[in-house]
């Protein structure tokens, strides 16, 4: 019925449209139909393979990106929602592969990655945490990162890496604890 009323205008709602967004400081334009997941758009259409997909229902966190400065699951957004947005993916964290951020370095030093599949999401989510809270406690790190699954490391080394990058002994002001 709706179709009869509005005719081909209607069809346009389903069609692919051009999406313009800035990813890691660079402007991209690409076509996407409304249902295209932002994670697929980033990986397939923009060819940025660093963002990983582990569940496509928001639980594992591998696909986490910074969307207008805030961490977000790219598998729970549509590419069309990114039109005009500023996105940062793991590829955009270091200035170059030779000049890593402190967080990336401490991930390596603390052996906070094994297979590395969860790592992009871990780094993005820890980057967001540290920009909001530069010296978190151990417990704050765990709570902030709890939505990111890692099946290899068992997490401890990741906590250590985030604390090391934060210059924090993990105790915070009042002796925060593993809770």
């Amino acid at each position: 019925m709706a179709e009869m009323r509005t005719g081909h205008l209607e069809d346009a709602l389903f069609e692919a449209r051009e999406i313009a967004c800035t990813v890691n400081g660079k402007l991209y334009r690409a076509m996407a139909e409304p249902r295209r997941l932002l994670s697929d758009f980033i990986r397939e259409d923009l060819d940025l393979k660093g963002t990983h997909v582990g569940c496509e229902h928001g639980v594992c966190g591998a696909c986490t990106i910074l969307f207008n400065g805030q961490p977000a699951r790219s598998c729970l957004m549509f590419a069309v929602q990114a039109d005009g947005a500023e996105i940062v993916t793991v590829e955009g964290l270091a200035r170059s592969p030779q000049q890593l951020t402190r967080l990336q370095e401490s991930f390596s030093q603390e052996h906070a990655l094994q297979c590395g599949y969860c790592t992009p999401g871990m780094l993005i989510s820890a980057t967001a945490l540290l920009s909001e809270n530069p010296s978190p406690t151990d417990s704050e790190v765990r709570h902030a990162m709890a939505g990111q699954l890692c099946r290899c490391t068992g997490y401890e080394q990741i906590v250590r890496a985030v604390l090391a990058a934060a210059d924090s002994d993990g105790k915070g002001g009042e002796g925060g604890n593993h809770a």
Binding site: V90, S108, C115
Partner: peptide
């Protein structure tokens, strides 16, 4: 800076090659 493992640099910067990336 030296990294702990040779695998790390590519994995930390989004340049790993997993199956779906090939």
């Amino acid at each position: 800076m030296d990294l702990y493992r040779v695998e790390d640099r590519r994995l930390l910067t989004g340049h790993g090659t997993f199956l779906d990336d090939l």
